[in-house]
Design a protein around this nucleic acid. Structure first.
Lengths: 355, 355
DNA sequence: ATGAAAGCGCTAACAT
DNA sequence: ATGTTAGCGCTTTCAT
C-alpha cells in the first residue's frame, strides 16, 4: 500500500526534471550536463549521480523534436535472401554505429504501394535514407528528395538520374568478364540476367554483350533468371540442354551464378571444365570450396562508405549533388571458369585478373 | 527574390498548424482527421485536401512524445553472416510491418560494452525489443525489463531465466537427431558445438549426447566449432583425420554443418555415404542440391510469430510473463546423412523423420 | 462537431 | 555558471 505511489512511478521513465529535482538544479543544467554544455564540476557530479540513481536516459524522441534531427537513418531493401544484402546491411550498420546513428530497416518485398512506405519514411523524420535496391527506388527517391530528406540509391541507381546513387562500375565489370572469357578461349557465351527494370542487370549484361560483339563474336544468348535461384536454375538447364550449349555463362549476380553452378553439376557438367560460369558480387559463399566461383567483386566497403559519407555531409547541410558514383571492382578468379593467362595473385593470395 | 520566403519554407516539413490554417480549422481538427476522431465530412475533406497540397505527414516523433509509444521495435543481433538470422529478420520485419511497427536494427558484433547499447535501446523509448542472440543478451534483457520495456529473447535464451524467451525445443531436436543417427546404424558419433555461453549450442549437444549414451553407446567426441565456418572446417578436418574417424557428425547449426560438408568433401569423403553430417536450423542453403543437408528445422515462423504476439500483448499493457516458450521443430531428411527406415514425406514432398 | 489550452521531455535563447 | 522562458509538433481534456 505504502509503495503504491512509488511503484507507479516505475511505469514512466524518469525525465530530466526528475533528475533536476533530485540534483537540486534546473532542468537546463541537466540538459547541459548531458550535452557537453557549461556546468560546474560540482553540479555535473550531482546531476550524474542523480541520473544514475534514477536510471535516467535522455529521451531521444523529445530531443529530436527540438533539434530537428532524429539520429535515424532508414535503409530500404527488397529482400534479404540474396546474400549480398545482409553483407551490405552489416557494413552500413557498422558505419552508422560509429557515427552514432541508428538504422531503421525497411524490407519492402514486392510492395508496389508507395504511400504507406512514404508515410513511414517521411513520418519519422529520418535524417537520411539509403535505398538499397528497393523495388520502389526511383519513385521513392524522388519523393523523399522533394521532402528534403537526403536519399542515396545504393547498387541499383535511377535510370532517369532523379536521385544520387552509388554503384559498382557495372559496365567495367561486365566488360572485363567478357574479356576474361574471351581470353580463356570461350567462344559461345550466354548471359543470365535479372529483372529488366534493374540498372545493375542491364548495365552488366549490356557491357558484356557489347564487348563480346566488339571482339567480332556473335551476340551472346540472353536468358532471364529473374534474379531468383529457381529462375537461374531453369535458365541454366535450358541453356545446357540445347544442341549447341554455351561454353560460358555469365550470371549478372552471384545468387544466380550459385544456382547455375549447381544446375550445371546436376546436368553432369563440371563448372570450370565443361562449362565456365562467372558471377557478380563476390558474396561470402562464392568463396566456399564447393562453389569456388569466379566473380566480379563489388567494392562493398567503399560503396557503403561513400553512401554514408555523402549522407552525413548532406545532413550537415551541404546539399547532395545529384550524382551517381561508380566504383570499379575486381575480377576474382577461382575455379568455376577456365582461366586465361595473366591471372595475378594479391597479398592475401587472392587470385584476380585485370586484363 | 520573390520566391525566397516560400523556398525557405520547403526546408521545414509542414506541420499540423500549417494544414489547419490552409483548411481553415484548428489544429485539433487536423489531429482528429488523421486519427479517426470526430470531424464533419466537410471539414475532413478540406483538411485532407490541404494536407495533400502541402504534402503534410504527421510527425511520428512528436506524436510519440504525447502518446508515449514510439512505434519502434528494436531487434538486436550479433551478426548476419549465419544465414539463419537474415531469414529471421525478414520474418520479423514482415510481421512488424503488418502490425504497423518499424524495425530498428542493432547489430552488436562482439560488443561487450553494455552502456552505449542501452542508451540507444532505452533512449529511443522503443516499444519493445527482440534480443535475437545478441552477445549481450542476458544482461541487456535484465536491464531493459527493469526499465519497463518489454524484451523477449529469441533463439538463445537466458540461462538464469531472467527474461522471457522463445526458442526451438533444442533438447527435443538434439535428441531426435541422435535417435535418427542411431536408427541409421551410426556407431561413432561426434558433435561440433558453438560457443559455450550459447544456450542453443549447449541444449542441443547435451540432449544429443545423453540420448546416445542412454542407448548404451560411448559418449560422442565433442569439438568446438566456435559457430564459425573456419572453426567447423578445422574441427571436421581434425575429426576425419583421426585413426578412428566418426561415422556421423552432428553440427549444432547449419552454418557449421555446411562447412563440415565441404571439409568432408575436401578430405575425400562423400557426406551421406562415407560420413553422415546433420545440421540444425534448416536455412535456405541447406536445401541446395550441392549440400542437400539433413537438418533439424527450426519453426522460424512460429517463433517469430510468438515473439511478436507476446511483445504486442505486453505493449498493450498485459505484463510479460517471464516464460520461455520452446517450440518443437522437425527433422528434415536429405542426403548428407545415411537414412534409417521410417522416413516420411509430407504434402510438399519434403522428407522428414519423426521417430 | 469544434476550438482553446495544457502538456509530452527536451533544447535553446535570453537573462542574470 | 545557472535559472527562466519559450517553443518543437503533436494529442488530449475540457468547454462550448
Amino acid at each position: 500500500m505504502k509503495r503504491a505511489a512509488s511503484q507507479n512511478r516505475v511505469l514512466k521513465a524518469p525525465t530530466g526534471s526528475d533528475v533536476a529535482r533530485v540534483a537540486g538544479v534546473s532542468k537546463s543544467a541537466v540538459s547541459r550536463a548531458f550535452n557537453g554544455g557549461l556546468v560546474s564540476e560540482d553540479a555535473r557530479a550531482r546531476i550524474l549521480e542523480a541520473a544514475r540513481l534514477l536510471k535516467y536516459r535522455p529521451s531521444l524522441t523529445a530531443r529530436s523534436l527540438t533539434t530537428n534531427k532524429s539520429g535515424l537513418i532508414g535503409v530500404a531493401i527488397t529482400r534479404l535472401d540474396n546474400h549480398f544484402y545482409p553483407e551490405v546491411v552489416e557494413h552500413i550498420s557498422e558505419r552508422l554505429r560509429e557515427e552514432k546513428y541508428r538504422l531503421v530497416l525497411f524490407i519492402t518485398r514486392g510492395e508496389t504501394d508507395l504511400e504507406p512506405v512514404l508515410d513511414e519514411l517521411l513520418g519519422y523524420r529520418l535524417d537520411g535514407i539509403v535505398l538499397a535496391s528497393s523495388s520502389l527506388a526511383g519513385q521513392l527517391a524522388a519523393e523523399c528528395a522533394q521532402s528534403n530528406v537526403p536519399v542515396i540509391m545504393f547498387n541499383n541507381i535511377d535510370f532517369e538520374n532523379r536521385a544520387p546513387g552509388v554503384t559498382t562500375d557495372n559496365a567495367a565489370g561486365g566488360s572485363q568478364i567478357a574479356r576474361f572469357l574471351l581470353a580463356g578461349d570461350h567462344r559461345r557465351c550466354a548471359v543470365i540476367t535479372g529483372v529488366a527494370e534493374s540498372s545493375t542487370s542491364t548495365e552488366r549484361s549490356k557491357a558484356f554483350n557489347e564487348t563480346i560483339m566488339a571482339a567480332g563474336f556473335p551476340p551472346p544468348l540472353v536468358l532471364s533468371g529473374d534474379y531468383s535461384f529457381e529462375g537461374a536454375t531453369q535458365a541454366t538447364r535450358q541453356l545446357l540442354a540445347s544442341a549447341t550449349p554455351p561454353d560460358a555463362i555469365f550470371c549478372v549476380n552471384d545468387h544466380m551464378a550459385l544456382a547455375a553452378v549447381q544446375a550445371a553439376a546436376a546436368a553432369g557438367k563440371t563448372p570450370g571444365r565443361d562449362v565456365s560460369i562467372v558471377g557478380f558480387d563476390n558474396v561470402n559463399i562464392a568463396s566456399w570450396p564447393t562453389f569456388s566461383l569466379t566473380t566480379y567483386a563489388q567494392p562493398t566497403r567503399q560503396m557503403t562508405d561513400d553512401v554514408i559519407n555523402r549522407l552525413l555531409k548532406a545532413i550537415d547541410g551541404h546539399p547532395l549533388a545529384n550524382e551517381t558514383i561508380r566504383i570499379p571492382g575486381r575480377l576474382i578468379v577461382r575455379d568455376s571458369a577456365r582461366k586465361p593467362a595473366g591471372v595475378k595473385s594479391d597479398a592475401h593470395g587472392t587470385e584476380y585478373w585485370d586484363g
